[in-house]
Design a binder for these strands. Structure first.
Lengths: 212, 212
DNA sequence: CCGAAAACCGAACAGTGTTAGGTTGTAAGG
DNA sequence: CCTTACAACCTAACACTGTTCGGTTTTCGG
């Protein structure tokens, strides 16, 4: 076949195609041959633009993480900073749920993750939190976001009401949760964040010694 | 070769071997041939005892989830119930960190997960929380646990201090976090849980209208 | 003692990520 | 304008994966 008249591949197109497949068919649905087919090409050609499947996924993950908004930490309302960060973080993950296991698993050495961590830590310390607390609060918030993005609590309940009635009497209404899964997820996340930030405000008064 | 004088395989031994490999070599380290070798057997023999690799992993996951302690919900101190549940849940996941992506990803239809969900929901409703809140609180707590188990905030920072100083000034001390990663993880989780439960206590007073 | 079933095995299939080496089109240098 | 170099794609292949089929040997119930 040989070289085409005009180039077919570039990193941008490869990233977009990979993300499209992951979103539509899941992480397992993405293979180099499948991606190549999507782009009208054969698998080995991809390796002229991408070092490996792993490197490709990390790049795509970085693209997604760049969507996270840490701008609100410039003000010194640390709670607002955390809220904006957490919400946009969760939104970014929820847009590509199939990528979440990969996103959350890997090390934090991603460009975009470091950028966010830097802003979060700087914002919290700037607002008066001791560095050690800033670290733990950043970690805790990430726990909440990643956990919320990972697996929905309400998704995945079978429709077989009978087994619930017999063996898990407290879950009789569980199957009906599926219809409102997204809404319940969102509400649960907001409730968790509200309660968490509420608790932090109390802690702030005892640790920093002034009203937040 | 044929049938051995005494059987070599059974589900228990297969489960134990699989978990051993996953713990030692990661999720990717587990292959049916690798597992068969571990048990002194060839891969196809496993299929006489296990329907598929996926079913095997789900069974192992169920074993792990059975370690979670939901007994504290029998008392009507809902905060203690949540604490014991969350701590044992996190401990179970932390014992097999390589299994966490699989555990957290799949649907909630696992036997052990349903059993836990039933106890949690029943305990919270029994303590006075409206069902809708019980659902959200159970979900939120799971978010925290799964998020904490998924990826450590402090793990994975590179040792290259220079790039931190240049580009992420707030993270200059990040590399040193690695040494205390486990401790920071544990402390962050406890802080998150304390703050979260604190916030819930406030909410309880306004929703249920009495002191928890 | 005989037949059935249990428990393992070898060979094979379609799929995976990845590399080596081949072929063709384009762009630069003389 | 021609050649040389390289860029961008290709085919073929390797070692691996989960899984199925059919075969071989052993044990157990009648």
């Amino acid at each position: 076949m040989g070289r085409p008249r005009t180039p077919v591949l570039n990193r941008e197109r490869i990233h977009a195609g990979a993300l499209r497949i992951v979103d539509a068919e899941g992480l397992d649905g993405l293979s180099m041959r499948r991606l190549a087919a999507e782009l009208g090409v054969r698998a080995p050609s991809l390796y002229g633009h991408v070092a490996s499947k792993d490197e490709l996924l990390h790049s795509v993950a970085n693209d997604v993480m760049m969507q996270v908004d840490v701008s609100a930490f410039v003000s010194d309302d640390w709670r607002q900073g955390l809220r904006v960060w957490a919400r946009s973080y969760r939104a970014a993950l929820a847009t590509h749920p199939n990528l979440v296991p990969f996103l959350a698993y890997g090390p934090a050495r991603r460009e975009a993750s470091l950028r966010a961590a830097d802003a979060v830590h700087g914002g919290l310390v700037g607002a008066g939190w001791p560095p050690r607390y800033a670290t733990m609060i950043g970690a805790s918030t990430k726990y909440l976001v990643v956990g919320a993005a990972m697996g929905s609590f309400s998704r995945g309940f079978e429709d077989d009401v009978q087994i619930y009635r017999d063996r898990y009497p407290n879950l009789v209404d569980a199957p009906s949760l599926r219809e409102h899964a997204d809404e319940i997820d969102a509400a649960s996340f907001e409730l968790a964040m509200d309660a968490f930030l509420d608790g932090l405000a109390t802690l702030y008064r005892t640790v920093v010694g002034q009203t937040p």
